[in-house]
Write a protein that binds this DNA or RNA. Structure first.
Length: 420
RNA sequence: GUGGGUGUAGCUCAGCUGGUUAGAGCACCUGGUUGUGGCCCAGGAGGCCGUGGGUUCAAGUCCCAUCACUCACCCCA
């Protein structure tokens, strides 16, 4: 017998009834919005082959190199709890030949992710994201639809203080040329670069743009810009995205150094931040990944999507939620009425009244207090007296008025009440 | 992985420079009404003062270690 009770794992949390109704409200807004844009839900397994993430997210990203929950199972397979969802959805898209069934596939998910990071405000080891992936179109209209869907969801959540940042990191050719250029430019100063930037120099030079070091920022200021390496198609694509966003009144800021962390992104990248959070202020990140499906062994298929952190959305959500209250509370007194009360409660519930009764065999005073605490609107009292006269006493808790109702017409009487 | 902050009742916290049986508010239970809630009043239950060690006549209080939580760095949703 151990003395210490077992605790939940660091960075995981229980969502208790005092919060779960907020999650339900959030999920229902997400699903309603997805419906309007005609996106359909996809659910993928909690774990995948580790190789899926190595080959898509990128071996040199932080997610893959130090944050994945990976293990070898009893059959010798290398498995990983999913740390992000674009790769699993792309895997499913290929495996189920969704591209062959429809030229365009618009998918959404609400799911748990796992990353072994040090927890802090807005960051947990098991966390939740909702997001979408749209496969099949390379045109700016879908970029804009994806961004509009994200912003529309946040608007429906009545979030304030949001900023949308936008950039294009170009197509594959552009990235290849830019990669060469920035390496060329930084080479003479390689020794002055930070350790992480030196690693990135070799493995993923684009990410050096992400640097926080003031020295390196100054150095990069006069260096090559991604936009200088856009192909004319890249440039037209990005301009059209910007114009369409203007047209539908979505405000954005251009952010030339916004390089999404994962390897598979191409062209459009965007991020939404909130000024109501702490250091972890990104509530949504996304972008285009035109090479991903092919890279994972599928037919060449353009794609774009985003993921939004639900814990962070709830932190930024200032609305006051009211959990659902009870409507009817049945107070029972004495052994002889118990079966009657169970029966009546069931009948009321079948008629869609939110009904409660005491299951602790408590005194009338306790039951009344309980009814009050649960914010019940009406109390039905049935004791020996009522039983002998075949009536029930019905009390309006807000006014305190009460009246006697013949037993057989209780349901009709309840139906006639102004219940909220 | 690195750094800061915090651990006292279910919750929020008080406990002065070490000094008797460790406190408050809220929440909970019972009663004030032999069958009537809220407000009020009276009472009650509930604490290895995170854990281990040390200093001391004496530790919730000082020192060390450790664990947990939390914020931040890194990175990300």
């Amino acid at each position: 017998m151990s003395k210490r009770p077992i605790r939940s794992i660091k960075g995981t949390q229980d969502i208790l009834p005092d919060q779960s109704f907020r999650w339900q409200a959030l999920e229902s807004i997400i699903r309603d919005t997805m419906d309007k844009y005609n996106y359909h839900e996809i659910r993928t397994p909690a774990f995948e082959n580790t190789a899926l993430f190595l080959h898509s997210v990128g071996e040199e990203t932080d997610i893959v190199s130090k944050e994945m929950y990976s293990w070898e199972d009893q059959g010798g397979e290398n498995l990983t709890l999913k740390p992000e969802l674009t790769a699993p959805v792309a895997r499913s898209f290929i495996q189920n030949n969704l591209g062959g069934l429809n030229p365009i596939n618009k998918l959404y998910y609400i799911d748990s992710l796992f990353r072994r990071e040090r927890p802090q405000k807005g960051r947990y080891r098991q966390f939740h994201q909702f997001g979408i992936e749209a496969f099949g179109s390379e045109f700016p209209e879908i970029d804009v639809e994806v961004i509009a869907l994200a912003m529309s969801t946040f608007k429906n959540l009545e979030l304030n203080g949001l900023t949308l940042e936008l950039n294009s990191i170009g197509s594959k050719d552009c990235r290849d040329n830019f990669r060469k250029a920035i390496k060329e430019y930084l080479k003479p100063n390689f020794d002055k670069l930070s350790e992480t930037s030196q690693t990135r120099f070799n493995k993923n030079p684009l990410r050096i743009l992400d640097t926080k070091s003031p020295d390196e920022k100054r150095l990069l200021k006069d260096g090559p810009k991604i936009s200088d390496y856009w192909t004319s198609d890249d440039k037209n694509h990005f301009n059209e995205v910007c114009e369409l966003l203007d047209k539908i009144n979505i405000k954005f800021e251009l952010s030339p150094n916004l390089v999404r962390g994962l390897d598979y992104y191409t062209r459009t990248t965007f991020e939404v931040t909130s000024n109501l959070l702490g250091a972890q202020n990104a509530i949504c990140g996304g972008g285009r990944y035109d090479g991903l499906v092919e890279q994972l062994g599928g037919k060449p298929t353009p794609g774009i999507g985003f993921a939004a952190g639900m814990e962070r959305l709830l932190l930024a959500d200032q609305r006051n939620f009211e959990p659902t209250k009870s409507q009817i509370y049945i107070v029972g007194l004495g052994d002889s009425v118990r079966s009657l009360i169970v029966n009546l409660a069931e009948e009321l519930r079948k008629n869609n009244f939110r009904t409660n009764f005491d299951v602790l065999r408590r005194s009338i005073k306790s039951q009344m207090r309980d009814a009050n605490k649960l914010d019940a609107q009406y109390v039905i009292i049935i004791g020996e007296e009522e039983l002998s006269k075949n009536i029930a006493t019905i009390k309006d808790l807000s006014s305190g008025d009460q009246k006697e109702i013949p037993f057989e017409s209780i349901l009709n009487h309840i139906k006639s009440l102004p219940l909220k």
